[in-house]
């Protein structure tokens, strides 16, 4: 049987994600629109940071440390006289980079393990799922602290550590999806037609599971940004002088009474970023999960 025929047998062909359908659904969902707008603004800020930032984020001015907002420094200065606004603008780079990169790696690990577990079943499934259960017994932040302590500080290590933590959710979702889809006639048809295991997994099972991956992905990015900044707040983050919201918060916290914006401004940015991805995730869920769509159940 050719793939074309198998595709024709596929019942939820329509539920494969139509980009336009999703965009339309998001536009209809007010809250997720807000999310998308914030995400676009943050991304522009990260990309064009050198153009927007009024100062070099690393330029120290030891005569003007810990200043409150002024004409020259709209948000004031930090403990070594760097312009806070510029550092907040540049800080978006780290948060977004870690958020997106770690989520992608985590999704790849999770999707592969979830596909294998769901498709192979039996002992393989048992072991993979018990491993995810095991990881889920220790909250992400605590795992991250220990891993970061072991791996050492630095951007790469943070991303690696978070990826190694964040995959479990994806694995569970994919496995659940695969178990659901596996029994559908067209998959059985593909099986009967002698399609190879990998081919079935990637060409047939994966596309059907994309919707929940995307929803989980959006929410995971928010979670990763929270993790990264929490770790930075506790002192495990990227190395100085790289501008990072979490780091700024950590240092600014000690000067809360003198220059409140030093910690409050970067914290607000972290919150906005997390919020935006959660808003988007909410809208995506409504758009992609037909079960949650629509109003009221029909009475029979």
């Amino acid at each position: 049987m050719s793939d074309e025929t198998i595709d024709q047998l596929q019942p939820q062909r329509a539920s494969r994600i139509g980009v336009w359908a999703v965009m339309k659904a998001i536009l209809k969902h007010k809250v997720s629109c807000v999310g998308v707008v914030i995400i676009i603004l943050l991304s522009l800020m990260a990309i064009f940071a050198p153009l927007i930032a009024p100062h070099d984020p690393n330029e120290q001015d030891l005569y003007h440390v810990l200043e409150n907002p002024s004409r020259k420094h709209l948000l004031g200065t930090d403990d070594v006289g760097r312009d806070l606004l510029s550092r907040v603008i540049y800080g978006s780079r780290i948060s977004l980079l870690v958020g997106v990169a770690a989520t992608i790696f985590a999704a790849v690990i999770g999707v592969i393990l979830g596909l294998i577990a769901g498709y192979k079943g039996g002992m393989v499934d048992m072991v993979i799922m018990r491993i995810t259960d095991t990881f889920m017994c220790i909250p992400g932040l605590i795992l991250l602290l220990v891993m970061a302590a072991a791996l050492g500080p630095g951007l790469h290590n943070i991303i690696i550590a978070i990826s190694l933590i964040g995959w479990t959710g994806f694995a569970r979702i994919i496995r659940g999806q695969v178990l659901m889809v596996r029994e559908l006639p067209y998959i059985e048809a593909a099986n009967a037609a002698g399609a190879s295991g990998f081919r079935i997994m990637f060409r047939h099972l994966l596309p059907n599971s994309l919707a929940p991956i995307i929803v989980a992905g959006s929410i995971t990015i928010g979670g990763v940004i929270m993790l990264e900044s929490a770790a930075a707040f506790l002192g495990l983050g990227v190395q100085p002088p790289t501008p990072s919201w979490g780091k700024a918060l950590r240092i600014g916290y000690s000067y809360l009474e003198v220059v409140p914006l030093f910690s409050i401004a970067p914290g607000l940015m972290i919150t906005l970023a997390i919020l935006a991805f959660n808003f988007l995730g909410d809208g995506l869920r409504d758009a992609l999960d037909p079960r949650l769509r629509g109003q009221g159940k029909k009475i029979e």
Binding site: V31, L249, I264, T271, I274
Partner: peptide, 14 residues
């Protein structure tokens, strides 16, 4: 959603 999203450390500082 805001309650879920707001990081503990920032809320604490505020």
């Amino acid at each position: 959603i805001i309650g879920v999203s707001i990081p503990v450390f920032w809320e604490g500082i505020v």
